[in-house]
Each structure stands twice: as C-alpha cells, then as structure tokens.
Simulated assay, not measured.
Amino acid sequence: MELNLADKIIIVTGGAKGIGEGIVEVLANEGAVPVIVGRNESDNLQTLEKTGGKGFQVAAELTDPAENKKAVEAILKKYNRIDGLVNNAGVNDGVSLENGSYEAFMASLHKNLVHYYLMAHYALPALKQSKGAIVNIGSKTAETGQGGTSAYAASNGGRNALTREWAVELLKYGVRVNAVIVAECFTPLYERWVKTLPDPEQALKRISDKIPLGKRMTTSEEIANMVAFLLSERSSHTTGQLVYVDGGYVHLDRAIA
C-alpha cells in the first residue's frame, strides 16, 4: 500500500532509541523526512545515519518548556512546514504512590505528558496549514495499571484524554489525532530491564506467554507501521482513536491457550 508520505516533514520526539528509532526508520523507508527531537545530539545523529542521512535532528531537553518551543522553531526555520507530529518521548520511571514524592511526581509528568501538549501547541499553526496529523504513543498502564508507577500511569491516562480532546478541537482544521497504545514491546531499554530480574530468560518467557497473539513481544517495527498508517492519507477518516498494537494483551483474555 502506498502511504503517500514522500517528503512529508514529520517530527518524532525521542526518535533516537527504542520505539522512536523504529518509527524514524519506517518513516524514512516510506520516503518521509523524519525530524528527531531528543536530548542527545550524538544519539540523534547516529539514528539518522541508519536512514542514509535523510532527515534532521534537534537536540532538546523536552522537560524544559522553552526547549519545546525552540525545537519547533528550528524545524520551521529549516523546512517552513510540519506535516506530522509523533509524541513518543518518555520513560516508565517508577514514581509510586507509596514511595514517591510531590517533586518526583511532577518531574515525571514533565518527562511523560507535559511536552506532549507543548510540542502539539507549538506545532499546531503549521499542522493547521498542512492539514497534518498527530500520533501520540501511549502505554497499557493507563488501563491495566502496573503497580509502583503512579506518575507514568497518570501521564498515559492524560495522553489518551488529550488524544480524544485534540481530535474534537481540531476537527474544523482537518487535523487528525490518534494514539498507538503499546503493551509489551521489546526494545533495548526493555531488554536492560529484563536483565535486572532473577533468571531473565524465564522472566521474559513468563511475560511473552501472557501475550495472546503468538505468545511473543510486539516489535518496534510493528508499532512504527501503525504510526505511519495513521500519519498517512490512507487513514483519512480516522481520528480520536486509541489503537492497540499489543497482540491482544489488553483486551483479550490472557488465559487463552
């Protein structure tokens, strides 16, 4: 299927690693121009090298509100347009109810939610001009809970709510807004976490066995393929949707043999 993404300028926050890196690679393969916004310039550039150098990067600390504005301004200075925004940057940082604090909770909201709003806010004039699309990356934690990660769960609940709210607010501009919800996706960060557990191989098997479709982890490429579709004209009548690319983890009975 031709997605007609050639030469589209698409921002991907946290695009240097993990799911974000997978999204950047798929977009580049589709002919789009991915623009990575992430805190580490060398990581950003390293990922762009894998695309053959196609794309652009802006080093920005997204927990700083001013850096969000500067990043969008730098992109507009170079390209004078924005066709899509993928809000992806964030981290499951384990700020819990029992052992967290006000300061840690608020810091986590800035890591995981506030910049979603700010990037969309500053990119919106350009997205209105291009009738572009926004895709928010979310997590199952907003629905399933996980334990020990109050701030991250709250942030993902906020991401889901903003997706629906923006879809309504931006209808009149033809700007579509959707979310891709991730459950268990095997990334380098996930792999490092698994290795901290007793008997990592068995731990990974226990997790994978709970995923109904194929008893396996979702790949970054599978997430990225859905993101590309939602950014494209092929999903032209899809907005306000939370799309679960999770092998049925959230909504299917995990007791299925």
Results as ranks from 00 to 15, higher is better:
L189M: 13
V95C: 08
D209Q: 08
E103G: 12
N112L: 09
A133S: 14
N136E: 03
S155N: 00
V135N: 04
N160D: 13
L162V: 09
F105Q: 01
G158D: 06
V177R: 10
S220V: 12
D199R: 12
F186Y: 15
R81S: 01
H121G: 10
L85F: 03
Q129G: 04
V175F: 09
L127W: 00
T218L: 02
G214C: 02
G84E: 00
D199Y: 00
S220E: 13
Y190V: 13
H121I: 02
I134S: 03
A154W: 02
S101V: 08
Y102C: 09
T141K: 03
S101W: 03
E165F: 14
V175Q: 07
G84A: 06
I137N: 09
N225P: 00
A142D: 02
P188D: 10
L85D: 01
Y190N: 02
Y122E: 07
M226N: 13
N87S: 12
G157H: 00
N156C: 08
M217L: 14
H115L: 13
K131G: 03
P125H: 00
S208G: 09
S139Y: 04
I211A: 00
E222P: 07
R206T: 14
I207H: 11
G138N: 07
A123P: 07
K140V: 15
K215V: 10
E143R: 13
R216S: 06
F186D: 09
T144G: 07
L197K: 14
R206N: 13
M226L: 14
G138R: 04
V114P: 03
T196F: 01
P125Q: 04
R216T: 12
L118N: 01
G174Y: 10
M119V: 15
P125E: 05
E169N: 14
H110G: 12
G138A: 15
W166E: 02
A107C: 08
P200I: 04
I211R: 06
K128L: 11
Q129P: 02
A107Y: 02
N92F: 04
M119P: 05
D83K: 01
L170N: 09
D209Y: 09
E165N: 13
G147E: 06
G214W: 15
N80P: 04
N136S: 07
E169T: 12
V86T: 03
N92P: 05
G214V: 03
N178C: 07
S150H: 08
K205C: 05
L127A: 02
V177S: 05
R216D: 01
T187P: 06
Q146G: 14
H110A: 15
G158F: 02
V175E: 03
W193S: 15
N156F: 06
S155A: 14
M226Y: 08
G158K: 01
S108F: 11
G94M: 07
T187N: 03
K131A: 06
K140G: 12
E222A: 11
E184W: 13
N80H: 11
